[in-house]
Design a protein around this nucleic acid. Sequence first.
DNA 1: TCCATTCTTGACTGGTCGTTCCATAACTGT
DNA 2: ACAGTTATGGAACGACCAGTCAAGAATGGA
Lengths: 191, 191
Amino acid sequence: MARPKSFKQAEALEKAMQLFWEKGFEATSIQDLVDTIGINRQSLYNTFGDKKQLFLQSLDLYRTQGLEGILQKLAEDEPVQQKIADVFRFIIDASIHDSRGCLIANSTLELANHDDDVATIVCDNLKNYEDAFRQVLLEAQQKGELSPDKNPDAIARYLFSSLQGIRVTAKATNDRARLEDIAAITLSVLS
Amino acid sequence: MARPKSFKQAEALEKAMQLFWEKGFEATSIQDLVDTIGINRQSLYNTFGDKKQLFLQSLDLYRTQGLEGILQKLAEDEPVQQKIADVFRFIIDASIHDSRGCLIANSTLELANHDDDVATIVCDNLKNYEDAFRQVLLEAQQKGELSPDKNPDAIARYLFSSLQGIRVTAKATNDRARLEDIAAITLSVLS
DNA sequence: TCCATTCTTGACTGGTCGTTCCATAACTGT
DNA sequence: ACAGTTATGGAACGACCAGTCAAGAATGGA
């Protein structure tokens, strides 16, 4: 039919995502992307559209990957409090080993109040995480692992907000013990 | 001795800070600053140095102003839990009325892992807030308003981290009730 | 084999970036 | 009134920005 692409689109998008994650939207130039992805400028435009479209696709890829990881942890056959603690431990590990933090959070603060498309993805992400936590908390109440006095809706929001806080705090301190202190107190409201 | 400036330096810095707060560091151009501040390009360079120096001065101005506001609230002659609740209510109000969020948090995620000067200010800010909370929590323990079982150090860290989380969450939802739910659960660990 | 289609290449666009130069204006102390 | 000093204004710098163009290369189907 026609000449095939000389690169894999999924791999290229992954590289773009990594670079946006490293540098942020504004600080990443098309030239940076061309160099990092290793494809030609025009191929980039043909495949992904302009810079903002490529960014949105990168952001959505990150969101999907991240959510998937969390959902897996929450689907384990373990006590709910332990599963949620695992999620917090995972985020703390990630924050310490990777100074880029969270691409969603970075993009939220950089762009969400000026760009509706970014705001939509950010909002979806919030909703997905809160839903995941809420569902697991409801199950916990059914199993008797969580007091029926607690409000799963509100706690789900609280947990997500706490995770965001930890990610921001982690950029100001690399002290794992401090972050674990925060997580421990956060999780104490579950018992 | 020489020709005096035709503008007030403090006012110019305030305007620069407002603009950086609105747009972020990368998205703010020197031309934007010249237009917004209303002074000549060369005067800007003479007075504040280059773009990054001006940004650092703006960031430090914001940090000082913000900290002062919080310290005032924590110095009131009221029960400690109420004072801390006031701080949270204040942050929620600010987050809802001002979509720019927190300049420190914005700068943390945009720049802290690439710029040591920004990281230093961000780190100082963390320390100042944690110190303020810790001191107030220690006083609370002395007055019997807070259980001696609690660890003021860890709770101080936890409170600051929670505030950051709320500021990030507020960019994804403008629903005041949700943010107040989060604050209520956060503060429940004090009692 | 040849055509239609798509991908790749590299030069190129107009515009904007942060920063600097230099001539001139305006002020103070003498 | 003059000298010394600093502020101002506007033009200019080279570098880089996001995005486009046209020509050639490579493929699959007929």
